[in-house]
């Protein structure tokens, strides 16, 4: 029901109901509130007509208020500015909710933030851009060095790019494995490629030990490790102990070590080892 309530006061105030009815105004309800007061509810459209009828009478109109939807409507009109502001705010929030206001790079690949921002700028993803455009750049983020996992999420105006890097993602070698020194092959492990020598063979420095072979997708793969032993003879103008230390610093692991005192210091003879690997962790 939508109407207006009028509170009337006066002697024989119930006569006011008669007046309204006789004037063709429909009374929706009426109730006594005091001995000489009552509240009459009429349609909101008849409000002006009712006031015109009651103006010259002996009744006091104490209060009027809208009821039902008319009351809600009158309050909305009185607070029109507030309503408009609320609607505009809600629209702005809904619009900006799906737009980029800030970019964050997280994860172990956080140090790649400059590269991520450069990719976004190159593709025209900036302030107020749609989140969908940023999510379409996922393959480019995955192509960054050492990145093995990437997610792109947009929520609350924040575009979050999470990058995870791994040291295990080494590119497979496309070059052959060559001998690091002139000597004898002590160990040869080949997981990818074609071995050209075997354990025990004598090889020259730079000689190809494992050649690259074509893989399923067309690239050439070499996954191999070789250990070459070679003899060393070195003279040091140092005492024996220091000469041995110097030799281990120069050649690493040494076996079959034999030292000889010389006029100026010490001669160190032995077998050293050199390793070469491709595609191994």
């Amino acid at each position: 029901m939508h109407g207006v309530e009028i509170e009337l006061e006066g002697l024989s105030v119930h006569r006011a109901i008669e007046k309204l009815i006789n004037a063709g105004i429909g009374v929706l309800s009426a109730r006594r509130t005091a001995k000489n007061a009552l509240i009459v509810c009429i349609r909101a459209n008849d409000r002006k007509k009712a006031f015109a009828i009651l103006r010259g009478s002996c009744y006091n109109i104490k209060n009027t208020r809208f009821t039902g939807t008319a009351r809600a409507l009158s309050r909305c009109i009185a607070a029109a500015g507030l309503l408009i502001g609320m609607i505009c705010s809600a629209a702005a929030v809904l619009f900006l909710q799906g737009r980029v206001l800030r970019v964050e790079v997280t994860g172990s690949g956080e140090y790649l933030a400059p590269e991520v921002r450069a990719i976004l700028a190159e593709e025209g993803v900036g302030l107020f851009s749609d989140f969908g455009r940023a999510k379409a750049l996922l393959p480019r983020f995955l192509a960054l060095p050492r990145v093995h996992f990437c997610t792109v999420k947009g929520e609350g105006g924040v575009l979050t790019v999470r990058l995870e890097v791994s040291d295990e993602t080494q590119p497979l070698a496309v070059l052959p494995l060559c001998s690091p020194a002139e000597g004898r092959v002590e160990e040869l492990i080949v997981l990818g490629g074609t071995p050209l020598v075997q354990v025990g063979d004598s090889v020259a420095r730079g000689q190809v030990l494992v050649s690259a072979e074509r893989g399923e997708t067309g690239e050439k793969l070499v996954i191999a490790r070789a250990r070459i032993s070679f003899p060393i003879i070195r003279e040091y103008e140092l005492p024996e102990e220091q000469a041995l230390l110097q030799a281990s610093l120069e050649f690493g692991e040494l076996t079959d070590i034999h030292t000889t005192k010389t006029a100026t210091g010490c001669r160190v003879e032995g077998t050293a080892y050199a390793e070469a690997a491709l595609g191994f962790g």
Partner: peptide
């Protein structure tokens, strides 16, 4: 007691 619709 109170009045409801009053018309014609």
């Amino acid at each position: 007691l109170s009045l409801g619709k009053c018309f014609k």
